[in-house]
Design a protein around this nucleic acid. Sequence first.
DNA 1: CTTTATCCGGATAAAAGATATCCGATTAAG
DNA 2: CTTAATCGGATATCTTTTATCCGGATAAAG
Lengths: 162, 162
Amino acid sequence: MQLAKGIEWTTHVCTIIALLPEGKGLSVDALAEFFELPAAYLSKQMQALRRAGIAQSVRGKGGGYRLAQSPDAITLLDIVIAIEGPSPAFRCTEIRQNGPCGLERSECKRPCEIAAAFAAAEQAYRSALESKTLASIMQEAAMNSTPEHMMEIAGWVQRQSS
Amino acid sequence: MQLAKGIEWTTHVCTIIALLPEGKGLSVDALAEFFELPAAYLSKQMQALRRAGIAQSVRGKGGGYRLAQSPDAITLLDIVIAIEGPSPAFRCTEIRQNGPCGLERSECKRPCEIAAAFAAAEQAYRSALESKTLASIMQEAAMNSTPEHMMEIAGWVQRQSS
DNA sequence: CTTTATCCGGATAAAAGATATCCGATTAAG
DNA sequence: CTTAATCGGATATCTTTTATCCGGATAAAG
Ligand code: SF4
Ligand code: SF4
C-alpha cells in the first residue's frame, strides 16, 4: 500500500502557490524546476487538483496555476482525494457470498464486521488529514524555518510569477 | 492507494481457522474452496501469515494451517502488516532539498510538517486497526449472524479438518 | 517402502496501476 | 495575424499486484 508521489508533490506545490499575490500564477515548468520534478507528470497531477476545485489554471502565454480557494479552506484530505480518488483503500469483494456456506445476496444488506472495522480505521485516517489545513501547515512550517529561507522562497515566487 | 485483496482474504481465513479444535488444521485447498479463491495465490498469502507468526503450518498428509496465537492476541493491524509490510504509505522523497531554494541536508534532520501530518494520520489508522482483535471481530459477527449459519460453518470446518 | 496429501519457495506470467512523455489545443502578447 | 507560452488529454513505459506453475520437502497412511 503506497500513497502516490503526486501527493507529496502537490502538497508542496500548494504551499508555494499559496504565496502568490492576487491575480498571478505559476507555470508548471517553474514549479517543476523549483522542486526538480518531471514537469509533464507534475502537470498531470495539477490537472487533478484543478478538477477537484483546489487549484485553478489559466492557459496561454502568461498563464499558470494558482489556488482556487483560501489556504484555510483546503485540507490535506482534499488533496489526497483529488490525487488518489475517493474510493476507500479496503476493497470488499463480498467473499462471504461464496463457497459452500455462502450467504444469500439478500442477507448481505449491510457490510460485515471486518469491512466495518476497516472503514472505521480509514475514517480515523481521513479525520486526521481533514484537521490539517494548508494554512495550518504553512504556519507550522514558518515557525520551523528561518526568516532568510522564507525570504528566499518569496523572492523566487515573485520573480517567476506572471 | 489500495489495500491488497489478500487482507480481506486472510482476515476471513483467520476467522475460520480460529474455529478449529486443538491440534487440527485446514488445508489451503479447503480454505480456497470455502471462499472460492485462487488456491495458489491464497497459499502465498498464508505463507506471509506464517512468517509473521500469526498462523502455523503442518506439512505432509493431514497437514494444514491453524492459528499460532489466541484470537484475542491477533489484531487486524497484525494481519495488515503481515501482508502489506511495515513501511508507511506516505513516501517522503525529501524534495525540499531540491531546486533553487533547496535546503541543505543538515537542515533536514527532522521530518517537516507535511510528513508529520501524514505520519500522524497513519498512526490513527493503525491505532484503530490495533484495537480490533480477531476475537472481537468474531464475537460481533456471531451476534449479527443466525445460529443456523454458525452451525453450518462449524460443521463444514469439522468435516474438512484433519 | 511406496503412495498420497500437503506445505514451501522460486520462477514466471498476466493484469492493473503508477509514472513519465508527447503533441495538439488554447490563449496572451507583440 | 503570428508567435511563443502554457495547459490538457492521449499515449507509452515502468512497477506493483495478482495469479499460476512446478520441483522439492515432509509426513501420514497403506
Ligand atoms: S464478510 Fe465483510 S469483508 Fe468479507 S466479503 Fe462480506 S462485507 Fe466484505
Ligand atoms: S518538506 Fe516534508 S514532505 Fe517535503 S520532502 Fe521534506 S520532509 Fe518530505
